[in-house]
């Protein structure tokens, strides 16, 4: 029995991203492909997403010119590959406020958005700091926050303070304060609907970029593997590790159930296909009665 289908939908990518950005301390280890994805969750009468990507009109040129970000496709095009449209989406969980996760709310006209209150309040604080501390305010677009003002006016924005259970049936939100960002969160899907679920998926946002953050070499401490944080934390690497432990405990330490969205290796773990636009759809699980979108 599975209530929800989950797909990871690639909407753009950078072919050559420095590995030390993905994996803390991985200096001089070359480059990896970094897909940009969002997650679609469908079932129980809902279509939900974890993050909404960015809007190419606002950022496309600078990302393309300066950082080699390629092949952006709109949510309309990307979601059509799994038989959905942006108008079908009723709920969006924003893992954090970076522009590539919260940068396209206008493409989802019927959705209600959930974000940690701390992500907003600490942004306000960070923007008030002196120029010499500007590092702490990278990657957030004031325009996305301005658009959040409209969402709030329209009662389509919900700020969450910490954990929130059953936001949708069997779907919980969990906070990871002062980690990748001030108010990052992850989404847990209990796909059998049970409190003590045997079928849990964790959608990690940017708390985990790739599987290597969950399972990196532990040779330095004579263990087989150990957690290693992502390369960017405005909070602390320790908080990233603590969040990773909590995510892993939720899935019984079965690491394939913690889903990173910048992971090209999803193709090796889950059924997937490349669309006509050259973007990957990875099928994490299927609800009862749902037909595969990658077969």
């Amino acid at each position: 029995m599975a209530d929800y289908s989950i797909w990871v939908c690639e909407y753009s990518y950078v072919s050559k991203y420095h590995k030390s950005g993905v994996l803390y301390g991985a200096h001089n280890q070359g480059y990896v492909k970094l897909p940009y994805c969002y997650v679609v969750i469908k079932g129980r009468g809902h279509v939900a997403m974890v993050d909404v990507g960015y809007n190419d009109k606002a950022y496309g040129k600078v990302l393309g010119d300066r950082f080699g970000v390629e092949n952006w496709r709109s949510p309309k095009v990307v979601l059509s590959e799994i038989g959905l449209s942006p108008e079908d989406v009723d709920t969006c969980f924003i893992s954090h406020a970076h522009f590539d996760h919260f940068g396209n709310v206008e493409d989802f006209p019927k959705a209600k958005f959930y974000i940690q209150e701390r992500e907003i309040s600490k942004w306000v604080w960070a923007m008030s700091l002196p120029d010499r501390m500007r590092w702490m305010m990278v990657a957030v677009d004031p325009g996305d926050i301005v658009r959040g003002v409209d969402l709030a006016r329209d009662k389509r924005l919900v700020t969450v303070d910490g954990a929130m259970e059953d936001v949708l049936p069997g779907i919980d939100l969990h906070a990871a304060p002062d980690s990748h960002t001030w108010g990052s969160m992850w989404v847990t899907v209990r796909n059998d609907g049970k409190k003590q679920s045997q079928d849990t998926w964790v959608l990690a946002g940017d708390l985990v970029y790739q599987f290597s953050n969950l399972k990196n070499s532990g040779a330095v401490v004579d263990v087989e593997t150990m957690y290693t944080p992502v390369g960017l934390a405005v909070g602390s690497q320790s908080n990233l590790i603590l969040a990773t432990e909590e995510m892993m405990s939720q899935v019984g330490y079965e690491d394939r159930r913690v889903i990173p969205i910048h992971e090209e290796g999803l193709r090796d773990t889950f059924p997937s296909r490349i669309t006509k636009d050259g973007l990957r759809i990875s099928e994490i699980c299927l609800a009862d009665g749902e037909a595969s979108k990658v077969a």
Partner: peptide, 16 residues
């Protein structure tokens, strides 16, 4: 520019 991309998870300071 509205956004400081230099340390975004999807950017690459070294390329920049």
């Amino acid at each position: 520019q509205m956004v400081d991309f230099s340390h975004a998870c999807c950017s690459c300071a070294s390329q920049h």
